[in-house]
Simulated assay, not measured.
Amino acid sequence: MTAHTIPPSSTSSSPSDREAAARERILTAALQEFAEHGWGGARVDRIAERADINKRMLYAYVGNKQALWVAVLERVYERMRQGEHLLHLEAASPVDGMRMLIRFNFRFHQDHPEFLSMLNEENRQKAENLKNSRNVTEIYNPLIVAIKDLLDRGRQCGDFRGNVSPIQLYISIASLSYFYFSNRHTLSTIFNTDLGSVMATIEREDHVVEVVMGYLRP
Rank of each mutant, 00 (worst) to 15 (best):
F34W: 07
M199A: 10
I202T: 11
R25M: 12
D149K: 04
Y77F: 11
L73M: 15
R134T: 12
E24Y: 01
D152P: 03
N135A: 15
T5N: 11
R25N: 14
L195Q: 03
K148H: 08
S177F: 04
I173M: 12
M1I: 13
H185P: 00
I173A: 03
Q125P: 01
S182T: 14
L68M: 13
W39E: 06
E128T: 10
V62Q: 00
L58K: 02
D96L: 07
L151S: 01
S197F: 07
E24I: 03
E138F: 13
M100C: 13
F181T: 05
S14G: 13
D111Y: 00
L87T: 06
C157Q: 12
R46A: 12
R103D: 09
A30H: 12
L216I: 05
C157T: 05
T5Y: 10
A3I: 13
V72I: 12
G196E: 08
R217C: 05
G162N: 15
V72C: 14
R134L: 11
D159A: 15
S16W: 04
Q156K: 10
Q110R: 09
M199D: 10
A42N: 07
T193H: 12
W69R: 05
R155S: 08
A67N: 04
L68W: 03
L216Q: 01
V145A: 10
A29Q: 09
R56P: 00
E19T: 11
V44D: 05
G40Y: 07
S172M: 08
F106Y: 14
I167E: 15
N105D: 12
L176K: 00
V95K: 05
N120H: 13
S165A: 10
L151Y: 02
L151G: 02
S10R: 14
D206G: 04
V44C: 05
D111N: 10
S188T: 13
E122I: 09
E205I: 04
Y178N: 15
G154R: 02
R155L: 03
F160P: 00
L27M: 08
S172W: 02
L151C: 04
H88E: 14
I139R: 02
L150P: 02
L130H: 00
Y215I: 05
N120T: 12
H4P: 03
N183W: 09
S93F: 08
R43M: 06
S13T: 10
Y170C: 01
S177H: 05
V208R: 01
D52H: 11
M98L: 10
I167P: 04
P218T: 09
R103I: 11
A30S: 14
E210L: 06
E49Y: 01
E24D: 14
S13Q: 13
R155P: 00
L116W: 02
N141L: 13
L143V: 08
A174I: 05
S165I: 09
E78G: 10
S12D: 10
A30G: 13
M98K: 01
R134D: 09
M98H: 00
K131W: 10
H185I: 14
